[in-house]
Amino acid sequence: MPVMTYREALRTAMAEEMERDETVVQLGEDIGVYGGTHLVTDGLLDRFGPKRVIDTPIAEGGFTGAAIGMAMMGLKPVVEMMTWNFSFLAADQIIQNAAKLRYFSGGQVSVPLVIRGPNGGGVQLSAQHTHSLEGFYGHFPGLKVVSPVTPADAKGMMLSAIRDPDPVIFLEAGALYGTKGEVPAGDAKVPFGTARVAREGSDITLIAYGRQVNLLLRVAEKLAKEEQVQAEVIDLRSIRPFDEATILASVRKTNRAVVVQEQWRWYSVASEVAAIIQEQAFDDLDAPVERVSGEEVPAPYARNLEVAAFPSEQQIVDAVHRALYRGA
């Protein structure tokens, strides 16, 4: 199986779809000549030309609105947000228009639109470039929200996103663009609404999405090695639609769960996951569901402060100990 980086996996999926389907177009700031500020769209301009790879003016609301108009006309626009923070400038177009047009047209109008870009922190860009918006966008009916962590899922979910008839919020792990992994060649779509068991285990269920999944895998190895605790790690990867079955099956096996996220705790994905588990697997739980979240501060710039603002291995180990009723 070919090995490629996360950004190459995204680019491969987009290029394959542009090759296969001439209605797929790209819009965004600096995505053409420059290849994207994160080099995700590098080379697409040369391959597909300026009519389909559009360097836009700096106007998130304007180009997202344009993309919605294109989508209503049957094109399949893929919009790059230089960072998800900048999507707030386009929030009215995304939330009030893209998400509601099907409903407000009684099903006459589809908006097959993908909005993609780096989500989350870890690369010292501070709070106006660092946001984890899965809870925010996951709140709105009419949107689909995904957050892959492996290069294989980055490609497979991008293929699904571009072919989806509804607007998709594609949250890329911004800190992981350079990480490598095996990626199946060809049409290896990963459907939305299915979580991935990233590591099997029997003692406790650790749940995350995006780059926190990698942190959980490290913690799980450490727990296995040092404490003989076998943790099962679940990568949600699809925030909306949401795969309840995989989580519930795991918790019914392990009877304990820790949910980890980089975003803030209040009104977050982890809160929703914890609620689903207690509603549907209350009798299977041997301990309260633990949450480990980002600190309640805007993401700071200095490396040491940024590290302190996001979940750490130690915080997760502590949460696991609490769920297992083990002293620190």
Partner: peptide, 15 residues
Amino acid sequence: TQVPQATGTAYAAKL
């Protein structure tokens, strides 16, 4: 909000 969308419908028609 329909005004930016019109640039998209126009772009699609032109393309």
